[in-house]
Nucleic acid binder design. Structure first.
Ligand code: FES
Ligand code: FES
Lengths: 146, 146
DNA sequence: GTATACTCTACTTTGTCAATAGGAATTATA
DNA sequence: TATAATTCCTATTGACAAAGTAGAGTATAC
């Protein structure tokens, strides 16, 4: 699995929206500043996240974005897969891998499947609620240490 | 981790050489045919594998390639990392990840580290001897079923 | 000396990533 | 209603890597 800037922005955006869940709308402008992303690029990412059903929006003055589900119902894996595609290191759609009569070539597939499964076991079991908790815990530590 | 054609070819090439280890040299031509790779592209990959110390070669008539170590001493992880680079889904060299004072941004790093570790646990524990065994086992099954 | 093979470097093509640009549509509110 | 703020949509660009192509150069067995 490879994670591009787009995927990185998407994850950070969803986390930021999760931190504001059930509170206020978040404008693209504020979001872009906090996660340090170019606003016009982020807008496209947010549009994608809308199409994916993760995010809703309100237009016009005092508009903004919000999560369409509770953070506990969104996993990191869902976002990553939606933005980046399958987690497999290499796809078997390729010709060299598609004729599986030749065992000589297919020993590697099992490895990629194991890697893919191990990756999924991690990213599908982290919800944005978990991440919100981590951030809040970090903030408390900071508050105490001041 | 993403695996490109180059990495795919490299793995298949090393496996083929492992299947001929301590037997005969393998020419680039034969290798390219068996693993279905463009010969001129494969030659570059083999040169890289030479520089990495995985492969040796003999020039001239009746030349060819051979493994420089026993298959049991080469892991899939070594080859992949040498050809493709680090296994992390996303690198922390990026600016947005480099100022780790902001915890809000760093919650994802732990996830990528876990994915990276899980990947390593798999690919670093498969040697080409293991793969040779698998291929031979597959061949036996085929032989019996005929 | 010649056929066969590896070596080295440069080039091309293609596609993706990341960002940029500019406007169109929508909405609260003064 | 005018206006400012905001999201929505599409097109374009620049940089870079992936994948393959090309051809001349070097070594070696026979
Ligand atoms: S190749 Fe995809 S598996 Fe045999
Ligand atoms: S960002 Fe690389 S870690 Fe905090």
């Amino acid at each position: 699995m490879k994670v591009t800037f787009k995927g990185d922005y998407a994850l950070k955006a969803v986390l930021d929206l999760a931190l504001h869940y059930n509170k206020e709308l978040v404008t693209g402008h504020d979001l872009a500043q906090r996660i340090d992303a170019p606003i016009k690029f982020l807008e496209q990412v947010l549009l994608d996240l809308k199409k994916g059903g993760f995010v809703e929006s309100r237009r016009g003055n005092i508009g903004g974005y919000l999560l369409s589900k509770a953070p506990v119902q969104i996993t990191v894996g869902e976002i990553i897969r939606f933005i980046e595609g399958p987690t497999e290191p290499i796809s078997c759609v390729r010709e060299s891998y598609s004729n599986c009569t030749d065992i000589h070539r297919c020993v590697f597939k099992k490895i990629w499947q194991r890697v893919s499964q191990a990756t999924s076991d991690i990213i599908d079991n982290v919800t944005f609620e978990d991440l919100v908790s981590q951030v809040n815990a970090g903030r408390q530590v900071l508050a105490y240490s001041i």
